[in-house]
Design a protein around this nucleic acid. Structure first.
Length: 454
RNA sequence: GUGGGUGUAGCUCAGCUGGUUAGAGCGCCAGGUUGUGGCCCUGGAGGCCGCGGGUUCGAAUCCCGUCACUCACCCCA
């Protein structure tokens, strides 16, 4: 044995930083959320739309805003072979709006209401409730200027989270006004901030010039007194926007949805107008407390080259939702575990499996009866002299007892046994794993027997 | 991009101020007589103690570096 002959250790392959596998034991929780979304949004007349995960970079740059953090430093952008610039979507709305314009959907469907679900990509430093690939459920409604649609969307989102089993939620509302209001207020704010620049943190001093609204979001303690004393956007809204917001609030109250308003709720994407909202969890998400956020975007469709079509929507983070949702128990994977014991039982079991599946029964055939040709093929547990023997023993050649354990592990309700005795009798021994009772069932009657009992 | 924390078995973690063959629980495998799961008992497999260097007679343990993960800032779902 030469000392230096160790194989060079390779860097193990692993998922990209900030991405995660959703393992078989976890998918049940996702299915639950997805199923609830489908069902819940359908109640409100929303249909699913699916758009590509990548788009031309320009779409996001124009839609979300060049100066936003998302666009300026968080996008996964890459060159296409023909020289174009593509970007993995960092959020859903831009792509959906592009699709609406491209296919003229608002014309086809005056009540255009859609929802979507899928992965989004942002190159941020991962932490609790924040990943580089994460999933959002997204909802958009187009073409209704009335405040009622704002209330509907907010109520729909809130109710959805409740149906997912979340509690301890807080709904926060604000209005950032129409584009002109926002513009004007930003100017007012900038003036006020410049006067007090020395009292602000470095970030806020920068934001004073780049995006003064963001100062309102600052969490640095020393900035708080200044922020509290700043002029409020509520005092700078146009009459229409003010009335609109008041009506949204009135309807939510009428619907019994608890909320609070915050003049400091400023969303980070440039396209928002009038109503903005956020649902935060009071605990369980670390510092990432926002589960759902959204707002109205009355100028976006036009800005992206479409008709002057208003819109409103929200996005909710599925991973964050799952962090807050009660754990989902794992679902049983099998109704009937077919266990042929003799070689002659293999074919009947194979046929039975097919019939069961055709009848909608989840059937798993145990291959434990299969014998390899080699004599004395090393049974499970025997040490192998191969260095790389970390793979588990194959299921073939396991004991009867061990195979029963497999059936139990699968959560099988019934185990159908076919050995020499059963073959002679022409009947399965069907064990009900729940009651631990066992009875003979004639070969052709298996499907009927289990179907009647599931 | 900037800080803090943590890297030991598939998972969750012990391992005190350096001292023999590195441990537990869970999980996995096998047994507890013939063909019967869960509960219990017994046994077993499985670790370059993240990686590299240094100090030392001796390092999982101390020091430096590096990488990874994680939490937080920024920002957002």
């Amino acid at each position: 044995m030469s000392e230096g002959s160790k194989p060079p250790k390779r860097q193990a392959l692993k998922a990209i930083k900030g991405t995660h596998d959703i393992l078989p034991g976890e998918t049940a929780a996702w299915h639950r959320v997805e199923g609830l979304a489908r069902e819940h949004f359908a109640r409100y007349g929303y249909r699913e739309i699916r758009t590509p995960v990548f788009e031309e970079t320009e779409l996001f740059a124009r839609g979300i805003g060049e100066d936003t953090d998302v666009v300026s430093k968080e996008m996964y952008t890459f060159g296409d072979r023909d020289g174009g610039s593509l970007t993995l979507r960092p959020e859903a709305t831009a792509g959906i709006v592009r699709s609406v314009i491209e296919h003229n959907l608002s014309n086809v469907d005056p009540l255009l209401r859609v929802w979507a679900m899928g992965p989004m990509f942002r190159r941020e430093r991962p932490q609790k409730g924040r990943q580089r690939q994460f999933h959002q459920v997204d909802v958009e409604a187009f073409g209704v200027t009335a405040p009622g649609i704002d209330a509907e969307i907010v109520e729909m989102g809130f109710a959805f989270l409740e149906r997912c089993g979340l509690s301890g939620l807080e709904l926060i509302l604000n209005s950032v006004g129409d584009a002109e209001d926002r513009q004007r207020y930003a100017g007012v704010l900038r003036e006020a901030l410049r006067v007090q620049a020395s009292a602000l943190c470095a970030d806020c001093q920068r934001r004073t010039e780049t995006n003064p609204l963001r100062v309102l979001d600052c969490k640095v303690p020393s900035c708080q007194p200044v922020i509290e004393a700043l002029p409020k956007i509520a005092d700078h809204l146009g009459a229409d926007a003010r009335d609109h917001f008041a009506e949204v609030c009135r309807q939510l109250t009428l619907l019994g949805i608890p909320y609070r308003t915050s003049h400091r709720l400023v969303r980070g994407l440039d396209y928002y107008t009038r109503t903005t909202f956020e649902i935060v969890a009071t605990e369980g998400l670390g510092s990432q407390s926002t589960v759902l956020g959204g707002g109205r975007y009355d100028g976006l469709v036009r800005d992206l080259g479409g008709p002057d079509l208003c819109g409103i929507g929200f996005a909710l983070g599925v991973e964050r939702l799952l962090l807050l949702a009660p754990p989902a128990g794992d679902e049983p994977r099998c109704d009937v575990f077919l266990m042929p014991l003799a070689a002659a039982a293999g074919d009947p079991a194979l046929m039975a499996q097919k019939l069961l599946r055709n009848a909608g029964v989840r059937a798993v055939l145990d291959h434990g009866f299969w014998r390899r040709r080699e004599v004395g093929a090393s049974p499970a547990g025997a040490p192998s002299d191969s260095a790389a023997s970390s793979a588990p023993a194959p299921v073939e050649g396991r004991s009867f007892k061990s195979r029963m354990k497999l059936a139990d592990k699968l959560g099988a309700r019934f185990v159908a046994i076919l050995g020499d005795d059963e073959l002679a009798q022409g009947a399965w021994s069907v064990r009900d794993m729940k009651t631990s009772s066992q009875e003979p069932v004639p070969l052709p009657a298996l499907v009927e027997h289990v179907k009647g009992r599931l």
